[in-house]
Every structure is written in structure tokens, then in C-alpha cells.
Amino acid sequence: MTDKKKIQLIYLGVGAICAMILGVSFWLTTLRGKLRENNVPIVEDAGKEEAGDLWELEKDLDLVKQDGAAVKISDLKNKVWVAAQYYTSCPMCAARNANSLLGVYNEHKSEEDFQVVCFSVDPDEDTQEKLQEMTKSLSVDPSNWWFVKAEREPLLQYMRYEMKFGDIRERKDPIEAAAKGKWSHDLGILVFRGNTLVKKWHERLPPESLSDVVRTALSEIKKDEVAESDE
């Protein structure tokens, strides 16, 4: 191969790499634009541990908790509440609840302003009896750990577009469904201060970071309460 051909090949290779970089950049820009059009927040620095306001809930939702009592999202307006998705037959939910949620709950359950709320992604199958069994299996107080359900479509729409949980899909592969459960859903945990989403915690992060966010949010809500009482 002559030197001229070698140089030509080098230029062709560089050109191909540049074209690839430009293509990826264009795709990312287009994707970002679609996310903004669909009103989905783009969370920067998702691995950071400090809380920072991300999203405001604008709508309310009627729910039923494990003891059959009717509740609403607006009932949590003065709480720091930790939200997670679940369904009673999900093995991955059970592991997350035991490894992460339960630890945070046990640390903060004595706080009057603290609440855990688990939202069913399979409300047709998650009966009140099953919700009560989950409560007993975790040895938690139903007054500050709610397992809630509602009509399926309004509930799924609210979780996806108002709370900004990820998509829910049914697993079609029977082997995968047997190992991971029927529904694929967001295993992340959201921390709210009233109507404000202050953190989305991903299951790959250490549980200590979730507890730190809750502690910070509780401190902030106490400051708000003191300020209101002084007015």
C-alpha cells in the first residue's frame, strides 16, 4: 500500500468518526427536545446526594389504603413522604423494601412529619387482604406506611405523568416473568416535601444517601412550620 493510499484511509477513518459523533449529538438533541415537549423533567446530576427541588405536583388523586380508608395525595401536603411503586407478587419490590425502604422507615418513623407511600402498579390483583399481609410481613404501622391503590388507568397515568415514575410494561417472556415478576416498573424511590419532588433515588445508590435526603427534607419542613407559627 502506497503512502498516498494510507493517508486517504486515515482521512476516511477520521471522517467516519466525525460523522458518527455528529449523528449521536443530533440524536441526543432530538431526544432532549422530545422529553421537554412531553413535559418530562430532565434530571441533571442524578447521583448527587443533596436534595434540590425538581418538580411540583399540580393534581390530586383519590386513593384507598390497606385498611380500606380513603386518602388523597393532598393529605400529604405537610409531610416528607417517600414514594415507591410495588405490586404484592413482585420479588424485586420485596428485596428493595427490605433493603432500602424499611431502613429509612425505621430511622424516621417516630417523626410526625414522615410518611412512606407505596403505589400499586397492579391494583386489580392487589386486594385489600394482600395489602394488609404486606403490612404485617414488614411489621410497619399502617398509619405512616401506606400501601395504596386506585382505579388502574387514572393511577398509572398519575404515576407516569404527574409523579414522573418510569414506564410500566408487562413482561412477555415467561422465564423472565417467573424470575422478576409480571410487571416491569420503576424501582426508584421518590422523596417529596409536600407537593415538591426533591429527589429521585435510584436503587443502585447506597441507602444512606436516601436517608440523608429524607433527613434534610424533614429539617426544611420543620423550619417552614416554625416560620408559619411565628407569623
Rank of each mutant, 00 (worst) to 15 (best):
F119W: 12
L138T: 04
L61T: 01
K4W: 06
I7R: 11
I10W: 00
M159V: 02
A16V: 10
V140E: 01
A98F: 09
I73M: 13
Y11L: 06
Q8H: 03
W55R: 12
D67M: 01
G166N: 07
A178I: 00
E111C: 04
N144Y: 08
W146K: 06
Q128I: 15
G194M: 07
K180W: 10
D141S: 09
L156N: 05
S229G: 02
C118R: 02
E220V: 01
K77W: 00
L101R: 07
L61K: 05
V148R: 03
K5C: 00
R32G: 15
R32E: 14
I21V: 14
K4D: 11
K182Q: 11
G13S: 09
W146D: 11
K164S: 09
E220A: 12
L57C: 05
K109E: 07
S211T: 06
G188Y: 05
A150D: 07
V71L: 04
R160W: 12
V80W: 06
Y161G: 11
V117R: 02
Y86L: 04
L54A: 03
E151L: 09
D60K: 04
Y105L: 03
E208N: 11
D122W: 05
L63E: 02
E58Y: 07
A179S: 13
L205A: 15
R160A: 13
A95C: 02
P142E: 04
D186S: 13
K4F: 08
E50W: 07
S184I: 04
A217Q: 11
K79M: 11
L218R: 06
D45S: 13
T88Q: 09
R152I: 00
L31K: 14
A150T: 05
R96T: 13
K79R: 11
S211E: 13
E44A: 14
C90A: 14
N195F: 11
I175L: 14
D167I: 10
F192T: 01
E133L: 12
L205V: 00
A179K: 14
R36T: 15
Y86R: 05
H185R: 07
E151R: 14
D230T: 13
Q66Y: 02
W183M: 13
N106F: 03
V64Q: 14
P142N: 03
I221L: 09
I21M: 11
M134K: 15
S74D: 15
E203Y: 12
W27A: 12
Y11W: 12
T216N: 08
L187H: 15
I189S: 02
V14I: 14
N99V: 01
W81I: 03
A51L: 08
P174Q: 11
S110T: 15
W201A: 00
Q128V: 09
K199H: 15
K164M: 15
S120E: 06
E37F: 05
E170D: 12
L210A: 06
D124W: 07
L190S: 11
K200D: 02
S143H: 09
M159E: 13
L12K: 07
Q115D: 05
F119V: 01
W81Q: 09
E44W: 06
Y105M: 06
